[in-house]
Design a protein around this nucleic acid. Structure first.
Length: 257
DNA sequence: ATGGTCGTCTAACGA
């Protein structure tokens, strides 16, 4: 059995105690983090080693930053997305865990549809698509996890009418996600029956969490072979209820032969 | 209460 999780922590240093407590309780084999917002020299390595986790990270000052925590070491680590070599933003980290290729992404937010940041988001997603083609060809089992900053379907949006054509739901973004689906990378969450109005992110503003005005943008995509081993996928909203929470909840998937 | 927050290189910016 294997449990793989993803969590946008919105500053690892602020959220460290939440992450450590969550690891102790849930014991994932791998936890992918986004928005660590910590440089590599300041990454809290020792705290995770003490819990029995290996750490792999790619950070920068102030923004972005991704990491993989794993019970066993990763091999064949990539921290540059091919096609985005000149991009200073640290949003990508891949490694192999046992026989599973794990790709951790913090997809650009995109700000406003048709803005420069939006075009950057689409370019980044195109590079991810090309990378996914290759990884899917090389590895039998592959998984893409992270903050996609895309709500796949209207069922993943608290008020679809309010959000029509807005960032995180616009057609071009959803098409980019659909092209990953066409490679065989399916949205593991929807392999199973789930409660309605299940979201993974709630804006800090306007009491969004209390009113459950959220979006499901933190996703676990598995390729065709790995998806046959997936037995469960769950969003854990409990950490969102804590004092000084991340605006995102962790999501995990459980695999069994 | 029809609301307006966080986190970061404390000052705007990004989400």
């Amino acid at each position: 059995m294997l449990k793989i999780a993803t969590w946008n922590v919105n500053s690892l240093r602020v959220r460290l105690e939440h992450v450590l407590a969550w690891l102790k309780e849930h014991q994932p084999d791998v936890l992918a983090l986004q928005e660590t917002k910590v440089t590599d020299d300041k990454f809290p390595v020792d705290e995770f080693i003490a819990l029995g986790y290996q750490v792999t990270f790619s950070g920068q000052p102030t923004y972005n930053g991704v990491a993989l925590l794993s019970k066993e070491p990763l091999s064949t680590i990539d921290n540059v997305l091919p096609g985005m070599e000149d991009d200073p933003q640290k949003r990508f980290l891949a490694g192999t865990y046992e026989d599973i290729r794990i790709i951790n992404v913090y997809v650009p937010n995109g700000a406003v549809v048709n803005s420069n940041k939006y075009l950057y988001k689409l370019k980044w997603l195109e590079a991810l698509y090309k990378y996914a083609i290759i990884q899917n060809a090389v590895y039998d089992k592959a998984i893409i996890v992270g903050d996609f900053n895309i709500a796949p379907k209207d069922a993943d949006v608290h008020d679809p009418e309010e959000w029509v054509d807005k960032i995180l739901v616009s057609p071009a973004e959803r098409d980019a996600l659909e092209s990953l689906h066409n490679l065989g990378f399916i949205d593991t969450y929807r392999q199973f029956e789930q409660e309605e109005n299940s979201f993974s992110w709630w804006d800090y503003r306007a009491a969004s969490f209390r009113r459950n005005r959220g979006l499901r943008i933190d996703l676990i995509l598995t390729n065709q072979i790995l998806s046959t081993f997936c037995k469960q996928c769950h969003i854990d909203v409990e950490p969102r209820r804590l004092e000084k929470p991340s605006d995102h909840a962790p999501v995990w998937a459980y695999f069994e032969e």
